[in-house]
Structure formats: structure tokens, C-alpha cells
Amino acid sequence: MESFRKAYGALKDSTTVGLAKVNSEFKDLDIAIVKATNHVECPPKERHVRKIFSATSVARPRADVAYCIHALSRRLAKTRNWIVAMKTLIVIHRALREGDPTFREELLNYSHRGHIFQISNFKDDSSPLAWDCSAWVRTYALFLEERLECFRTLKYDIESERLTKSVPGISKVHSRTRLLNAEELLAQLPALQQLLYRLVGCQPEGAACHNYLVQYALALFFDMAKYDAVKALNIYKRAGQQAEHLAEFYGFCRTLDLARTFQFPILRQPPPSFLETMEEYIREAPQTWFHVKEETG
């Protein structure tokens, strides 16, 4: 049965490529999308992803970029195969991280007309693995949608747009949130917390935990060396302690007569599962995260 599914998937891919060659005005782009998101259980091949990046660059007309997003959305909406769905999300995620900002801008415009990641009913029940991976696909889509909403609030992308502060002989990369004033920080933190909530929810379960394609997608979340991950964990722990002390300080201020006219913000801590996930990652991660070699063919 599994062999039949693979053969059927390959036939569907070749048929779709053939139709694109005959009917599509964006032949090369359509073929690259189908090949990058085919039914083969391996990460999207780099040469196809690069063609998609090229088709959505600032040098191309905005209509071309919009068509690419429409084609990816259509691919995601029509498929009932978890491999195709996950690879489509990976391509979108990589385009947001590594592609030209025009892709993100057009994706924001497209999402105003309807959620591109609205696949809450997606299900591939062809096998126990497909069932577990389908659940993770839905979670992955929620994270990417939240990532887009976070950009609407922050007006910058926390992954692809970092500020570099140069010091003689040292280059430090840090988040823009370090430069915000109190008012801006309070406006942006809820969006960041919600994105963190979606990130924590991306912990796979069941057979999906050991699937290589899921692990490849997760590498886009934790793309950092073990040493950097340790530093990040210590920062989160310290932030949690500071939040507790700040809550105590607010509690004291509320007892003062003058404070009766003020409204203090509600402080929410990252869920314990996030710290547990980070600690588990640090225990098991190599000194640097794995890199995927492109398959031949």
C-alpha cells in the first residue's frame, strides 16, 4: 500500500508538472513549486527553493510575487498529503526568513483577503505516521500565521531583521526590542508572547517526533549553536526572575494612596513547557545544528 501511495504521488507530481509546461503563464515558477513540494519524503531541494526566491525578488514585478503566493496557497489548500503540506509550509517559512521582503509584504496583502494558513481541518489518515504529522502540520501553520501577525504589530521581522552593533573586533547581534522605550515595549510584548505560545505548541508528538522532515522544519526554529542556546535559556530564566520581582514591586505600589489612580499591567510568564523544551534541546543538541545536504537527482 505504501509503495502504491508513493507511485501515485509521483504520478500526480509529474502530471502537474506536465500541465504547467502546457498551460501556465508562469511555467518555470509553477514547475519549481511542484518540485519543491512534491510527494517525496525529504526536504525541498535547494535549487527549486532558490528559483522561488528569484521569482519573488524585488527585481520582479509585484504581480509575479503575488502569483507565487497564490500558487503556494493553492498547493496548500488542495493537498491531502502531509508531505506536500509540510514542504509547502517549509518553503513559505524559508521565503519569510531568507527571501526578499517583497514576499512578506505581498503575503501580508494576500492574508487580508483570507488566511493562507487556514488548514485547521487538514488531515492525512493514510497511516499512523501521516496522522501524527498532520497534527504537526496544523500546528506549524498556526505558528507561521502568528509570525505574520506579529510582524503586523512590530513592523519588523524578528528572525530575518536583526540589528548589528559593531564593536572593535566584536560583532554583536541583538533584537530591536532592546532599543524600544517603555510604551513601545508594552505594545509589542503581547504579540511576542503570543508568538512564543505558538512556538511552544510546535513540539511534535507521537511518530512525528522522530520524522526527519519534521526535524528539518524544527531546525528553522532552533537554528543556533548549543552555546548560543545556553545563553538564550539563561536570558529567559533571568527574565522570569525579573518579572516576579516586578510583580512584587507592583503589588507594593498598589498599597500606596497615590497608586490608586494608576492601572498596572498584568505580567504573564512564558509557560514552563517552553523552558523544559529549551533545556531538552540543550541536553541533546550537538555543538552546532545539523545541516541538510541536497539530494542528487
Rank of each mutant, 00 (worst) to 15 (best):
F221V: 00
L186D: 05
S126M: 02
A55D: 02
K231Q: 13
E41N: 14
A10K: 13
L256S: 07
F264H: 09
F4C: 05
A77F: 06
A207F: 12
T139H: 08
E146S: 12
P271A: 09
T296G: 05
K45G: 06
K87I: 02
P286L: 06
K165C: 09
K35L: 14
A36W: 03
P61M: 09
L267D: 01
I69P: 10
E248G: 14
H48L: 07
L89M: 10
R113Y: 13
A285D: 02
V65D: 00
L196F: 08
P265N: 06
L11F: 14
V58H: 14
N81I: 02
Q188N: 14
A77Y: 04
D125A: 14
D13W: 03
R147G: 02
L107C: 05
Y212I: 00
L148E: 03
A59L: 15
F262P: 03
L148N: 02
P271L: 04
P44H: 08
A130K: 06
E159P: 04
S175G: 12
T79K: 05
C209H: 00
G251M: 06
R47N: 13
L258Q: 08
L129V: 04
Y281K: 06
P271M: 06
P272N: 07
K293T: 05
I119L: 13
L267F: 05
A208W: 00
G18C: 08
R260A: 03
N109R: 11
A32K: 03
F103E: 02
V91E: 01
Y281N: 02
P272Y: 08
F53G: 01
F26H: 13
S175K: 13
R178C: 11
H70V: 02
R176F: 12
R162D: 11
Y110E: 06
K87P: 08
E149P: 04
W82I: 00
S127F: 08
